[in-house]
Lab assay of single mutants.
Amino acid sequence: HNLTITQGKLFFHYNPKLCLSEIHKMEEVSGTKGRQERNDIALKTNGDQASCENELLKFSYIRTSFDKILLRWEPYWPPDFRDLLGFMLFYKEAPYQNVTEFDGQDACGSNSWTVVDIDPPLRSNDPKSQNHPGWLMRGLKPWTQYAIFVKTLVTFSDERRTYGAKSDIIYVQTDATNPSVPLDPISVSNSSSQIILKWKPPSDPNGNITHYLVFWERQAEDSELFELDYCLKGLKLPSRTWSPPFESEDSQKHNQSEYEDSAGECCSCPKTDSQILKELEESSFRKTFEDYLHNVVFVPRKTSSGTGAEDPRPSRKRRSLGDVGNVTVAVPTVAAFPNTSSTSVPTSPEEHRPFEKVVNKESLVISGLRHFTGYRIELQACNQDTPEERCSVAAYVSARTMPEAKADDIVGPVTHEIFENNVVHLMWQEPKEPNGLIVLYEVSYRRYGDEELHLCVSRKHFALERGCRLRGLSPGNYSVRIRATSLAGNGSWTEPTYFYVTDYLDVPSNIA
């Protein structure tokens, strides 16, 4: 807008934040220059609390790290170098490059900038070799853009010569660093050979998330399962459950009422301010606690030095998902009996873990797994792929695949051998790939016309006998059925096997 004052003059007093240069501009645009008398524009009460600059400061050096910015700028000295009290560095987070010096300023003089007072450097006698002032900004957020400017702080001049310097606002972004852990990993099994893994992005990506790394490792069953005799009275049979499938998407929606109208769909109840505040506090606490764990609990591995020492970490090797089922080394339970199943799973520490690289999504279907087997899954978020990966501390989750139908069934015939004193040795093959492992066998036998009897055969007993022995049988026709019990439950009964026990007292003698 054009402003013209045809008559009258300007009068400025007691404006401590208004620089004289701005008042002189007002004289020019209003056409009143030359009308004012000496005392109409006070030299001592206008701009006496402001830094009124008329020179431009330029930054000469900028260096960044993930949490620091090192700045240096060209030296500046007023005509009387004693008038320079120091520099004021202003900075704040700036997602967009549209910041002005006066953003967030209120009537009390406060604003949204963080201000650092910096002492002037030592003055050199040689004007050509003056030290460049600077400042190291610490405690910054990774991968965050900051708006920065600097200006001088000078003393009051009796001659009211307006001098000083100020830089333009520059924008500097800190470097990326390792992201925080992925949030809320959930693993479920939808079949006997697959596990579905879902997660949420890290709360602090500290860069642009480029991919996720998912490692999985087959877990050995508890050692007590191999040692305890679950045929003993009072000892509860062990059981394991597989990871249940995901709930429906509708039930997972946030901010939804727990109660549904019987007449149909209901609208979600909005969260109160107290609920939102509580969630923010919980989120802040979780982030602080995660940072504490990362800094205190997890110790970084030592990389190899120039002395030739090897990095103890196993090298990563990509495998196809079809090879995942046989990740671990199978060892027989008892070496003397080769027909026992290889369900003991000690994992070799030198073995390469299978892994998958996930790009542009937060889910993965891990296939080719062994049925009813526990897996430990390790999830890392990465925001750099080359020249070397920059990934987060791992988040861990466990899951067990679903049982395989008929995996616990005894394959092959049940054979028998009759000894003296009416002892019958029953023999059968253990299931080759049971659900988890076989903890015991149930032997059901009966003599024709009598009630059915049951015998429990422990895992250890089966390994020693290759089956079991029935003792003290009365003469007669017998039928026997056997079924295995694994961590997933009972298998199917075998087809009945028949044998006849004679009275050993009636056996004919070869003595003449």
Rank of each mutant, 00 (worst) to 15 (best):
P270W: 07
E290H: 15
F355D: 03
T303F: 08
L473G: 00
K278R: 06
R400I: 09
T485M: 09
F372Q: 04
L464N: 12
D311H: 06
P346T: 14
R376Q: 06
Y292M: 11
E404H: 14
I418Q: 10
A335N: 13
A405P: 02
K357Y: 04
S251G: 02
S348A: 04
I276E: 06
D261A: 12
S444Y: 13
N326H: 04
K233R: 12
Y441G: 00
W216T: 13
V334P: 10
P338H: 12
Q380R: 04
L455V: 08
F419Y: 13
S342E: 12
R471K: 06
S492G: 07
S305H: 02
S248P: 12
V296L: 07
V423T: 07
K302A: 07
E389A: 06
Q219T: 02
H425D: 14
N421D: 15
V443M: 06
N339Q: 12
L321M: 10
R286M: 10
S239L: 12
H352R: 09
S223Y: 11
V507I: 10
V365H: 03
T340G: 03
S479C: 03
N339S: 11
N206Q: 14
N255Y: 04
N339I: 10
G489T: 06
C391V: 01
G491A: 10
S251A: 05
P413Q: 00
H294E: 04
L232P: 12
S444T: 13
A463M: 12
V359E: 10
T307Q: 05
T497F: 01
S348P: 11
E290V: 07
R446P: 00
D450L: 08
L437W: 01
N255L: 03
I410A: 13
L440Y: 09
D261K: 11
R318T: 09
T401K: 00
A309R: 12
V393P: 00
T401D: 00
N421T: 10
L277D: 09
S262K: 04
P314S: 12
Y504T: 09
A335S: 10
N435V: 00
N360I: 05
E378R: 05
R376V: 06
L228M: 08
S223E: 12
R318L: 05
W216Q: 07
L464M: 10
F285Q: 05
L453T: 14
R459S: 11
G322M: 10
R286N: 03
Y500M: 05
N360D: 03
T502I: 03
V329K: 03
H371G: 13
A484R: 00
L453F: 08
F499V: 13
P245S: 12
E265F: 11
R469N: 11
Y478D: 15
G368H: 04
A484I: 14
C267K: 07
K317R: 12
D250T: 08
T210Y: 13
S398F: 04
N383G: 03
S268N: 13
P387W: 09
G489R: 08
A394P: 09
L369R: 02
D385N: 03
D261H: 14
R466W: 14
S392G: 01
V439F: 07
N421S: 11
L237I: 14
F246H: 07
Q429L: 09
D222N: 10
E290Y: 05
D291W: 14
D408L: 04
Q219H: 11
P354M: 13
T415F: 06
G491Q: 15
K236V: 07
N206G: 03
E249H: 13
D408R: 01
Q252T: 15
F337N: 15
T241F: 14
S341R: 07
V397I: 01
R469V: 10
N206H: 15
D503T: 11
A220R: 06
H461C: 11
N326S: 10
R466C: 13
N360E: 14
K460F: 08
S509F: 08
S251Q: 11
R240K: 08
S348L: 11
S486C: 01
R301P: 01
S479K: 07
G491H: 02
R286I: 10
F499A: 04
M427L: 09
P244R: 13
G368L: 08
K361L: 11
F246D: 06
P270G: 02
D291V: 13
L237Y: 06
D273Y: 13
M427S: 11
S320K: 09
K432G: 03
Q384R: 14
H425S: 12
A399Y: 09
C456E: 02
C269H: 02
W493F: 06
R240I: 05
L455I: 06
S486N: 00
S304L: 11
G264M: 13
I418G: 08
D385V: 14
I418P: 05
D409S: 06
V393W: 11
P354E: 05
F226H: 05
A484P: 05
F226V: 12
T288P: 11
R318E: 13
T347A: 11
K302P: 07
F289E: 05
L277S: 00
K317E: 15
R301S: 11
R353Q: 13
E281Q: 06
V296S: 12
R316Y: 01
L280V: 12
F462V: 10
F226I: 07
F499W: 02
R370I: 11
N255T: 06
G264V: 11
H211Y: 15
V443N: 00
A407G: 01
V334T: 13
D250L: 12
V423W: 09
S492R: 08
I366A: 03
R483D: 00
P387Y: 09
G472S: 07
I276C: 02
E495T: 06
N339R: 12
Y448T: 13
E430L: 03
E451S: 15
V359L: 07
L470R: 01
E388G: 15
I276Y: 08
E224R: 08
V358Q: 11
S305N: 07
V414P: 11
I438F: 03
C266H: 00
D250S: 13
A263I: 10
G306Q: 08
F226M: 09
G234S: 12
R466I: 09
R471T: 08
L440F: 03
H254P: 05
P431Y: 01
W216L: 06
V443S: 00
E260H: 14
H425I: 13
C456Q: 01
H425P: 01
E227K: 04
Y478H: 07
K361D: 06
R313S: 05
K233N: 09
T415G: 03
I418V: 08
L277Q: 02
I410M: 02
A395R: 05
Q219M: 03
V331L: 11
L237A: 12
F226S: 05
S479I: 12
G472H: 05
P475K: 07
D385E: 08
V439G: 05
V397Q: 03
K357G: 08
G308A: 13
R376S: 04
E417L: 05
L487A: 13
D222W: 14
L228N: 09
W216N: 03
V334C: 03
F215V: 11
L455Y: 06
V334R: 06
Y441V: 02
S492M: 05
N477S: 09
S363M: 02
K271G: 05
M427C: 06
D273K: 14
E310S: 10
A394E: 11
E442V: 15
Y445R: 02
G436Y: 02
S203P: 05
E351V: 14
A488C: 02
E260F: 11
Y500F: 03
E433P: 02
G449E: 14
S248W: 02
E249Q: 13
Q256W: 06
